[in-house]
Design a protein around this nucleic acid. Structure first.
Length: 796
RNA sequence: GGGCGAGUGGUGGAAUUGGUAUACACGAGGGACUUAAAAUCCCUUGGAGGAAACUCCGUGCGGGUUCGAGUCCCGCCUCGCCCACCA
């Protein structure tokens, strides 16, 4: 006999929807509040994925568990609904993104409800909703007014395929993070957020976070702090100087040439007439190259001599200045001093162009032909000779700074966040351009700046908003003259940088969220999502929190106290699920055939939450069998049960609770299976024990638990009756099997009290026939006894 | 090149953080029920040897520490992910 999951699910899902019991979270003065958050989904047309179900089920189970323990838990849900897929779909089909988005959201909601997720539906938000993006625009203006949003012309990443600029974080190995096509450099005037204002805070803030070390490392890596020295080389026959950045100032006596990045503004200034043509050809060519080409591995280094020389401050030597695209403008000062004897890249370049290679650091291994880039002892370096690299660095920095020829300098890889996009489906940037007044912010009472409907979606390199008749032309709020709106939209990563704040107070019309409500819920106690957001969303959201903290809007700097990444669920073939491989598992069909409880438990039972693991439909069948057995235990209910069963129940209560606390759902489920098997084997089970079991199962299998609970004669929800408690005395057994090792090898077991003394244990062990056969005729050297764990008899 | 992580049965994975390796589940084999199948229930299931009691081997490889190592240390191998001409 099997239970009818379809009927049960329909019944309880309706009941939960009607009563909203235990789901709606109020900010009260109750202290025990928890804020659990999952990274909200992009509502794609293909619907909910089994990967979504994994993290959502995990959060849902924890939330239900904590609510049973009396905590006030908020688990909100919403949709990251602005973005390119809907817009690209519109370009192809002509269907407006708002329409497809609405449909997709309805599908998502229905699917999430079908797996019994107890989200607080009253807090549902959607980033493309004007009620939401009004506040995205408001925050943009807040940043603008406080100097955290600014406009600047610079070389930016441009994706031809997406027809928009991209932030540095959205360029992966020279390609667009979204569409994987090549990214090129363009000189454009764009809007930026000043993330670099909080660089050090973003770095140090990582220390106290309970986040996977990998994500912390990635953020650290991305911020890319590098401590080195800025050295000034005077240009011969000029008042100007070249500033270079190096982490090895101790090798300055080995600097045999200088390299400028092609984009370095100094190039034009110092290049000699006879070299001008060649240089401009080279720099133009370099600019045309994509970031991918520039950084391509094994690339043959190229460069051109400028004709100019600089003076080395330590020995007044004249050093030639070259331009080469192996030096990047975006890092350090866009110029380096080349020390070919001690840097691989410089070595390669020097060999090619026959530049001097001068050794100034002694290596441990002189037989090596190639350059030596590790630390060693300085030589051929005048006053640095004989010093260890670390000491030489100190000495030269002191020397340079005294001569005002250089100083310590810290550089970072992180750049300000480019937030404008030349695309339609996003929040319009709330700025008005006036010929007289320049850029003027839209007044607060005129927010939101609504997305116009009368646009041609086709990207032209300009924002599609440019073509709108209703949108573009406005009066300047300052002077009243004819003006035009900024037509770019805001990067959708801005939308998702503050949604966790809006959840605290999603319907507020006066502020983005009431301060007291943010104080009550935030920061987020547990955040679950994919690791792919390591340096984009998570860094941006942290920046927002740091900025809003700085501006006095929130009390905390770090928005997500604890973070966990769910592992990827692979297809049955062990490959990443994708439409093209045809290995995508649709949760709907699983829910229909095996039930919502089965898919929830199966996804938790597959393995540790953070691991990558393949889908196996046989596993779902196994879980369904377990649920059927758990259901069938009802027929065993009687007045009595064995002591062993009672004890096992208490152990199970402890184990399941402990495992939930640390998100080890797989072992919690395994314990429930052990309990179920024991109940099925038992003569009878008391109602009390079975009810406790059902409560433990309830967070995992809420539908089944509610149904059984009601059948057992309870009138209120199983979730309203509290989490079972265990009796400590019942966790220990009167006797246990103790493993006996002889010389470290497991040889026998004895039955003994877990807290027997060493003498007692020794007596029993030495009385054992089998043990005796091993130690007969040998010298007993030592007996190691760990009560309740092991005894090791050492003989010779 | 740098950083992070992982290697345990046929498979997914357990192992109280140094104490009976392989819990739980899947799969496989055998049996019961059935006209038959499905479902369900019971038994077996790391490898090798043995009729059996039992013995030996066994957590990627090689060392080490320890009474005792999947777990700690040193040196390798393999795989995965992230970053990378970062000066």
């Amino acid at each position: 006999m099997s239970f009818n999951h379809q009927e049960i699910e329909k019944k309880w899902q309706k009941k939960w929807d009607d009563t909203r019991s235990g789901i709606v979270s109020e900010s009260t003065n109750k202290k025990d509040s928890l804020y659990y958050l999952i990274m909200f989904p992009y509502p794609s047309g293909s619907g909910l994925h089994v990967g979504h179900v994994e993290s959502y089920a995990a959060i849902d189970i924890l939330a239900r568990y904590q609510r049973m323990k009396g905590k006030n838990v908020m688990v909100p849900i919403g949709y990251d609904s602005f973005g390119l897929p809907a817009e690209n779909y519109a370009i192809k089909t002509g269907v407006h993104p708002s329409k497809t988005t609405k449909t997709a959201i309805n599908t998502f909601r229905q699917q999430m409800k079908s797996v019994g997720l107890a989200f607080d539906w009253d807090r549902e938000i959607s980033t493309s909703d004007p009620e939401y993006y009004k506040w995205t625009q408001w925050l943009f203006l807040l940043f603008y007014k406080n100097g955290l949003a600014y406009r600047k012309k610079s070389a930016v990443n441009w994706c031809n395929s997406c027809s928009t600029v991209l932030a540095n974080e959205q360029v992966v190995a020279g390609c667009c993070e979204r569409c994987k096509s090549e990214v090129v450099q363009k000189d454009l005037e764009q809007w930026f957020f000043k993330t670099t204002k909080y660089t050090e805070d973003l770095l140090s803030g990582l220390d106290d976070l309970d986040w996977p070390s990998k994500i912390k490392a990635m953020q650290k890596n991305w911020i890319g702090k590098s401590e080195g020295t800025n050295i000034k080389f005077k240009i011969k026959n000029s008042k100007s100087q070249v500033e270079v950045f190096t982490t090895r100032p101790d090798t300055i006596f080995g600097a045999t040439y200088i390299v400028l990045a092609p984009e370095n503004p100094l190039v034009d200034e110092i290049v000699l007439k006879e070299h001008k043509e060649e240089i401009s050809k080279y720099t133009k060519n370099a600019q045309k190259k994509s970031a991918l080409e520039r950084t391509e591995l094994q690339k043959i280094k190229t460069g051109v001599f400028t004709g100019s020389y600089v003076i080395n401050p330590v020995n007044n030597e004249e050093i030639p200045v070259w331009v080469a695209d192996y030096v990047m403008m975006g890092y350090g000062t866009g110029a380096i001093m080349a020390v070919p004897a001690h840097d691989e890249r410089d070595f390669e370049f020097a060999e090619k162009y026959s530049l001097e290679i001068r050794k100034v650091v002694k290596s441990d291994d002189d037989t090596k032909e190639r350059c030596f880039s590790k630390d060693g002892i300085s030589l051929n370096s005048d006053f640095l000779n004989g010093l260890k690299t670390s000491d030489a660095k100190k000495k030269i920095i002191k020397w340079l700074s005294e001569k005002e020829a250089g100083d310590s300098m810290t550089t970072y890889r992180i750049r300000d966040w480019l937030v404008s996009r030349q695309r339609y489906w996003g929040a319009p940037i709330p700025i008005i351009w006036c010929d007289k007044c320049g850029d003027v912010p839209v007044e607060e009472e005129n927010l939101p700046v609504l997305l116009p409907e009368d646009v041609d979606f086709k990207p032209t390199g300009e924002s599609p908003l440019v073509g709108s008749k209703t949108f573009h032309d406005v009066k300047c709020p300052k002077c009243g003259n004819d003006a035009r709106r900024e037509s770019d939209t805001i990067d959708t990563f801005v939308d998702s940088s503050w949604y966790h704040l809006r959840y605290c107070d999603p319907k507020n019309k006066k502020v983005f969220a009431d301060k007291s409500k943010i104080d009550y819920w935030c920061p987020v106690d547990l955040y679950i999502g994919g690791a792919e957001h390591a340096v984009m969303h998570l860094l941006y959201a942290r920046f927002f929190a740091h900025a809003l903290n700085d501006l006095g809007y929130i009390k905390f700097k770090e928005p997500f106290t604890k973070l966990r990444n769910q592992g990827l669920i692979l297809g049955p073939d062990g490959e990443k699920m994708s439409k093209s491989s045809g290995n995508v598992v649709n949760p709907d069909t699983i829910v229909l055939e095996y039930g919502a409880d089965a898919i929830r438990i199966y996804e938790m039972f597959m393995g540790p939450l953070e691991d990558e693991k393949p889908w196996d439909i046989k596993g779902v069948v196994g879980i369904r069998r377990f649920l059927d057995r758990a259901w069938k235990v009802r027929s065993k209910i009687n007045k009595t049960e064995s002591d062993e069963l009672d004890k096992l129940m208490h152990k199970t209560i402890k184990k399941v609770g402990d495992d939930f606390e640390v998100l080890k759902f797989n072992t919690a489920i395994s314990q429930l299976m052990i309990m179920t098997n024991a109940m099925m084997e038992a003569e009878s089970v008391t109602k009390k024990t079975y009810q406790s079991f059902i409560k433990l199962l309830a967070p995992l299998a809420p539908h089944l638990a509610e149904e059984v609970w009601e059948e057992l004669g309870n009138t209120k929800s199983v979730f309203s009756d509290g989490w079972p408690t265990y009796d400590k005395d019942k966790l220990v057994d009167e006797t246990i099997t103790l493993a006996i090792q002889i010389n470290g090898k497991m040889r026998a077991t004895i039955i003994i009290s877990p807290n027997a003394s060493k003498d007692e244990a020794r007596l029993i062990a030495l009385d054992d026939e089998k043990i005796n056969s091993y130690i007969k005729g040998k010298d007993l050297k030592e007996i190691i006894y760990v009560p309740g764990r092991i005894m090791n008899i050492v003989v010779k």
